[in-house]
Design a protein around this nucleic acid. Sequence first.
DNA 1: TCAGGTCAGTGTGACCTGA
DNA 2: TCAGGTCACACTGACCTGA
Lengths: 492, 492
Amino acid sequence: MKCEICGRAATGVHYGVLACEGCKAFYRRGVEKKITYLCYFGNNCTPDANTRACCKACRFQRCLRLGMKIHGAKLKDPVLDGKKKGKRKLQGKNAESPESCPTMEISRITCSTQTDPNPLSTNPGISSADDFIDPDDALFPDLALAEVPSGYELDLADMDVEDDEAAASVPSDRLAMVRSKREGQPPRRKMVTFMNHYMAVLEDNRRQMAATVQAVASAIEEVFGDQIRCWKSCMERELIFGEMLYQPQTTLEIMMETLYCHNADSVKRTQRFASMMPGTCELDVSAKKNVTAGWKWLAFWLIHHGGFLTAEESYIVIGADNLRYCRYWQQMISEWPLLVFIYKFCGEFKEIGLTQIETYLLLAVVMFEPGVDVRKQSPEGNSKLELIHRHYTDVLFDALKRRCTDNAQLTDTCRKLERFFSALKLVHRLHRHYFRALDMTKAPFRAMKGQRQVTVLDALRWKDDNEDPNGFDNRAPLAYKPFAIRIGSSES
Amino acid sequence: MKCEICGRAATGVHYGVLACEGCKAFYRRGVEKKITYLCYFGNNCTPDANTRACCKACRFQRCLRLGMKIHGAKLKDPVLDGKKKGKRKLQGKNAESPESCPTMEISRITCSTQTDPNPLSTNPGISSADDFIDPDDALFPDLALAEVPSGYELDLADMDVEDDEAAASVPSDRLAMVRSKREGQPPRRKMVTFMNHYMAVLEDNRRQMAATVQAVASAIEEVFGDQIRCWKSCMERELIFGEMLYQPQTTLEIMMETLYCHNADSVKRTQRFASMMPGTCELDVSAKKNVTAGWKWLAFWLIHHGGFLTAEESYIVIGADNLRYCRYWQQMISEWPLLVFIYKFCGEFKEIGLTQIETYLLLAVVMFEPGVDVRKQSPEGNSKLELIHRHYTDVLFDALKRRCTDNAQLTDTCRKLERFFSALKLVHRLHRHYFRALDMTKAPFRAMKGQRQVTVLDALRWKDDNEDPNGFDNRAPLAYKPFAIRIGSSES
DNA sequence: TCAGGTCAGTGTGACCTGA
DNA sequence: TCAGGTCACACTGACCTGA
Ligand SMILES: [Zn+2]
Ligand SMILES: [Zn+2]
Ligand SMILES: [Zn+2]
Ligand SMILES: [Zn+2]
């Protein structure tokens, strides 16, 4: 009637093991939340009624080792339990000497071997005979055969906790031997938990990234789901099934009004989308506004709509009456060069071949870009933006890595993205010099600065004085690198 | 600056002891509530940053022993206790409405405004008049002036808790209304901790990276300190002060023997260095061997020694007799083309301009590169290697970022590193086809495969069949990208 | 600068519910 | 009986406030 894990009163067999309510819940939480625990005492604590809270890692270990399983066909056989004790003891893995941590106690490793090089017995002559058995280093003494310095091989046995046999290999008598002066207590040995820790950090990060992807996905669905479905069906019906969609008769005035409303609606959707991105709500007001303001909104508009443009036609449907904002009307309302730019920009974006979620992650990256204005106005807001920006960058890159099966594809995508970011500069100029000066009272819309008309080409070529000096032209294209060396095996 | 009790960052002297916030609060609670803790481990636990929660008894003990004292003065009276409850409730901090979390409960925001775009009162005509006051978006409705959809400001109001007026708009009756069935309890509002969490992860990572840098630095000092100092002084004395160093008379045989010993010693040093890298000790034996074996060791040798070569001369001193392994002897012992390659390789490496610590971090990156042989032999070992490799990559890149003041410098360094990794392929070939076949019995050393001599050029050009297909030629040079967009402000 | 206080966040396990 | 869920509770420590 005792919990096999902690020794308190058991309430029954849970997940295959006689356990108390606490251990049951503990195990469930651990599995559900995929928590990675760390042991700071050497992975051999024995949780009991009082100390179960002290080392979650070992408590969880014990749950696993005793056979807890969440999809619990109650399959544990108690026979194994007894057998496993102390089986693999002496085999292979050496040395549990408690001070063996090389990182923490580096100085322990003796230096004496250095000035006393031990000429090895390797005969260099052999090496030229056989290509496969020869030592790796002919010029230099062979490593594989070199005597391993003491202290080098330590600490192996502790690692593989998955391995039941290895785990069981710490029998109580052995332990007793290494126990320090205080008796009866498990020794307080410090463990190197480099790997565990790093993995925990990565895992933590991964979890947060997954949460972000989830949030973005549901934001897309909730904010743009109807639009996207509508436009997509429009596109499919016409392109795949060849249907000619019914296009209600309309006038230029109605079209302009509808477009205006559509864009007003678009602003709101974009804002809502932005507000649903994890992290936004922690920005202060001005930074939050910046996220969807100005050129960023233009970029968002282009990318969001651009998915439903082909080289020749537009499948965007706007307004309550489902007016098709087709090429014909676009040409009536906008200047030709503008359309050329937009279609080109969107076409090139399509070529990147991002999935939907990646596209909107990219938009998040764009939105959270910390611009010079935020940087000047509020250094604090800027650092927050940078943090979020970095997060979305990570998430996007992670998504790409996950999708791309080979390096070449990933490289290719990254290169295209790099070009895309360059092109964003054009969007920025276009917004600054063209859209902000656009006269929307009569079609086709034209941009006027004072008396002079600004053409799209003018705007695109406008070399701006206060463009960020850290901007595109000399920015670091390689800022993160995994330094991926992949060299052929030296064997095989 | 460290808490004397647990070793975390201290925030000052509390109750007479340099302590962190946690230990301060812990002690206060313990005294106030007169809690008696029990140690289950023998009353001699040493609380540290990770384990302070494990044994409250010893933590409290330690507080007492280090001299924490509540100077009775400000002992609080329990009468106040009752009053304060619910005092702050209505003050300032608004909105305890439990469903107000925008991120977690997105769906609450109504969608109704979307299909009902509200034509704004902005007159587009204005925009062309003034260049600075005009709305950002002329073609599209202005964001700043656009009516904010309901639901969007929700989280704004939540955000700035400073704002009393906004806060006051959520009166307590409202609160009561939304309170769940259990009454009288403050509702359990979940806060979005995106930023905090992300920062915590980053900080955690940063701490580990700093520890790694520290470990590498001390490994350099401990393993190579004497060598580096010796060679450096040799170099300085000759290059800067123009001294001609005394070079003992020696013979080719002695030189070859000394070199052999030096290399044997080098192997051991390299192994020791590797074993001192955080993470190594958690690798299994074969992966651990791979870290300093074969071409990796050759690369290590080249970089480690390369710092003390100039274009014309070598300042490496070897052996117990401090023989100068100068260009003259190198030419006697090695073939000319090999020397050309080595001097070129090392020269180019110097051009990258890495600091010492960066150089050895780079070597760690090289050492922990998971090669195809490990990948094939042990997938598990490979994943560990990849983890460590990634870590050192992060650390190196972080160090570079920290050092480089501007993007251009960082870019440049990254580009050079990229070329360096390409060149590593040559080292790999050289090792595989030249060094492994090297006949070291007579000087100058020559590589023979069967009867045929292999020249350095042969080796360098050797296109290997089983070079990793994921290898250099099509690897992702940009694999990590921060997607750094830096565009000029749209204002200012 | 520090004592004292606050409270969001987290982990825990007793208890509930339905199969 | 047990899986899965809920939630009151305790503890923690970052942060605030006032001396
Ligand atoms: Zn239990
Ligand atoms: Zn433990
Ligand atoms: Zn402390
Ligand atoms: Zn204790």
